[in-house]
Amino acid sequence: MSEDTYDAVIVGGGPAGLTAAIYTARHNLKTLVLEGRKIGGNALEAHWVDNYPGFPDGISGRDLMEKMIKQALRFGAEIRNETVVGLSDFGDLKMINTRMGFYQAKSVVVATGVSRKMLSVPGENEYKGRGVSYCGVCDGPFFRDKTVAVVGGGHEAVHDVEMLSETAAKVYAIPGRKGYSENFPELNRIREDPKVEFITGADVKVIGGSDFVEYVTLDGADRDRLSLDGVFIILEHVPTAGILGEAGVSTDAGGCIIVDGDMETNIKGVFAAGDCTCESMQIVTAAGMGAKAALSAMKHVKSLG
């Protein structure tokens, strides 16, 4: 076998992928993590993580992911910043193609996470980067003392309302007609915040302005229009499992990778973990699934002899 044959190649460097790497590398499996974007994944955007066990005072997503990276490296996992573009199944060996070359692996853990859904309203594309943002923690600082809206009814949207209200002059929280998906604990705090105004039972219809965003129009609210400087679109995520087509990995109608109780896909030796399975959108559960997938991958590699 070539020198580039790994016991485990992990596609994705978020909480699931890095946890899988910690487990496989710690058990002396030759482990490679491939991540095309920033190592750490979407969890890096988490302003503050209050519910990850072991951090009683909470921890920023960035610090948590840096610790996971350090831990994976300590056990000898290799981490490379390469985008995976294809995965092929050759029985006992899998081939992983990246933009820079290819690797062979006895087992693969897919932990590609998710990408954010767009709002798909007029003005969204036009004002992208000119007031329309998809990342509160990345772009929030540019809206200090300004008026913004956070569109979305999930936990991340709630987080971003709370975070942006620390620096913005005013924050409109617009969960959409369906409202918030749960009664998140942060909502009680936010409701006391005089800088936050909830716009409920309404959807954003149009994002408009001149050079930069200046307003949104609403459908279903008391008011037709809100004047503002920025719109943070923080909607639910969709799985990013597009690379799996060639290998024939089964996904459901929503694109979520289907796994069994051992986190194995329909392809022997290919496992999946984390948000790309749509099981949950929590860092701790992603990490748990990563560990479980790694244990199954170890068992699989051992069975190959």
Partner: peptide
């Protein structure tokens, strides 16, 4: 760039 932006690493490179 921002150190917390998942795309900035690739852009910096």
């Amino acid at each position: 760039f921002s150190p917390v932006c998942p795309y900035c690493h690739s852009a910096r490179k």
